[in-house]
């Protein structure tokens, strides 16, 4: 090792020695940026926004150019008409599945405190459709994606993002044409969840893993309640519908843990959404939001 090092360093003695001052200056600059960004009101945010305004459209354009190629295998697998049938069936399937998934929750809501109108209202949202154009690398250890709808489309921070299957995440920040979405599997993400059958509330924490191991941990507030396996968990929702609206299916309980030392019950949730293959998503916006594209209304129509 030492011999190799000497060999590597050898020719450098003939050249100019690399400046240590420059290295120190750059490292200090990095540390300064880090400490500035760690402040609660980060002075880096305007810079983030400015860089986003430049790179957002570039990402949208690049994703648009790449999409035909990523769709090629799918196109070859079946003819056009079959492809359409398949899409229709898939849409119907996820629609039925989400109906089944929220059935318990809906019934409880109806029985407990809501009339039919209120329930219908709470389950019907206006959605701004968007496509995922950029994914953060796993090397960054955070699970975020870029979508191609921004403030021009009526999107602003702290809105819920869903797809056909269930809850995807929430909007962190927007530029004019793009938005950054924090996925619920991110290790930073906390979602208020409710077990559909028992109406028990708890908190869902992401594990920061995508793919087949992408799970969420549910911690129930009431330590006497034992969640049942295969129960559906839906969002709990908060005042004013932000950041997560109520009643969106999140996932299914796969394992339940209870230890004597811990005060709360823990359960592992398998999310309905396949985070490795995100494409078309919808951002939940208040009805009547003005947008640069067609908004999907609660009754299923377009505006």
């Amino acid at each position: 090792m030492s011999r190799r090092e000497r060999r590597w360093r050898g020719p450098l003695h003939d050249q100019q020695r690399p400046s240590r001052g420059l290295l120190v200056a750059l490292v200090l600059a990095c540390l300064t940026v880090m400490s500035l960004d760690s402040l609660s009101a980060s002075p880096i945010d305007p810079a983030r926004r400015a860089v986003g305004e430049v790179f957002g459209p570039a990402e949208v354009a690049s994703a648009g150019a790449v999409r035909p190629f990523t769709a090629v295998p799918r196109w070859f697998r079946s003819r056009d008409s079959m492809q359409q049938d398949l899409l229709d069936l898939q849409a119907e399937n996820s629609d039925l599945r989400s109906k089944v998934a929220t059935q318990d929750y809906d019934r409880n809501r109806l029985e407990e405190y809501d009339g039919l109108t209120a329930a219908a209202k709470s389950l019907g949202y206006s959605l701004v459709p968007a496509r995922v154009v950029g994914l953060g690398p796993s090397q960054s250890f955070s699970r975020t994606v870029t979508i191609d709808a921004g403030s021009d489309a009526g999107v602003h921070p702290d809105l819920t993002v869903v797809n056909n299957d269930g809850l995807v995440g929430r909007v962190l920040r927007v530029t004019r044409s793009t938005a950054t979405v924090l996925l619920i599997v991110d290790a930073d993400s906390v979602v208020g969840g409710r077990v559909g059958r028992s109406m028990e509330v708890g908190f869902l924490h992401g594990r920061g893993v995508l793919g087949h191991d992408g799970r969420l941990d549910l911690e129930l507030v009431d330590d006497t309640a034992v969640p049942a396996k295969h129960d559906t968990v839906v969002t709990w929702g908060s005042e004013g519908g932000g950041p997560y609206v109520a009643g969106v299916p999140v996932g299914r309980i796969t394992t339940v843990y209870s230890s004597l030392r811990e005060t709360a019950q823990r359960a592992v949730i398998d999310p309905y959404v396949d985070f490795g293959a995100l494409d078309l998503v919808g951002v939940v916006v208040p009805t009547g939001t003005s947008s640069d594209r067609s908004v999907i209304e609660p009754d299923g129509g377009l505006r």
Binding site: V33, M34, E59, G136, S140, T180
Partner: peptide, 16 residues
């Protein structure tokens, strides 16, 4: 890399 979307970690980490 730290600032362009969809990055969300503390800026300066990839720079360092």
């Amino acid at each position: 890399l730290d600032l362009a979307p969809p990055a969300d970690h503390v800026a300066g980490r990839w720079a360092l």
